[in-house]
């Protein structure tokens, strides 16, 4: 009776182990297809053929957003700190789009090396806080926030506890 249970248990353990191994191998083999977007450095280093559609993700470079011509087209640069790729997009931008904000764009490179996007999605980071706290963090220079803060009232209401407690605040783009 006990030995049968032990046998079933070891069979189960072996099965789960084999399954986990198979899953790990499969996922690492398909890694290139599972990533949702590629960073600017990858795009610059890899020789991606023209007109091949892919997603480019990164931060919108500060001071790079410009409206051109008809007013509906914008150009900006997507950066990861090391490299930047110019992007042209015609359409409506999401509410969260602003300089310093993470974005994922879908399109292809043209002959001039400009990424022509037909879709721009905003990517927000994992930080959640009230506007006053964000304001206070910026004021104290512990964190360089991104873009304008909507509805930020007084920085006096600053929650200093929050500032001290938040060691992990960084806007660095870890992807």
């Amino acid at each position: 009776m006990r030995s049968r249970k032990k046998k079933r248990l070891s069979l189960l353990a072996c099965g789960m182990l084999a399954l986990a191994g198979a899953a790990a191998l499969t996922l690492s083999a398909f890694e290139d297809n599972i990533v949702f977007f590629h960073g600017p450095t990858e795009v610059v280093q890899k020789d991606i053929p023209l007109d091949r559609r892919f997603r480019l993700g990164g931060l919108v470079q500060e001071g790079s957003v410009e409206k051109v011509g008809d007013g509906a087209t914008v150009t900006f640069k997507v950066t990861d700190g090391a490299n930047a790729v110019p992007v042209r997009y015609r359409g409506i931008l999401p509410d969260l789009f602003r300089e310093g904000q993470g974005v994922v764009t879908h399109g292809s490179l043209n002959r001039q090396g400009v990424f022509v996007a037909d879709e721009v999605l905003a990517k927000h980071d994992e930080n959640y806080m009230p506007p006053e706290v964000a304001q206070a963090l910026k004021k104290s220079g512990r964190w360089e926030g991104d873009g304008p803060i909507p509805g930020a009232a007084e920085a006096d209401a600053a929650d200093t506890d929050a500032i001290n407690g938040k060691s992990g605040l960084d806007t660095s783009y870890t992807n």
Binding site: N127, M129, P130, V133, G165, K166, S167, G168, L169
Partner: peptide, 19 residues
């Protein structure tokens, strides 16, 4: 992997990134 979804805010090493 790179995802559009953000990373974990609560269960991460260090303080949670949520006020």
């Amino acid at each position: 992997w790179n995802t559009l979804h953000q990373t974990a805010s609560v269960s991460r090493i260090g303080a949670p990134a949520i006020h």
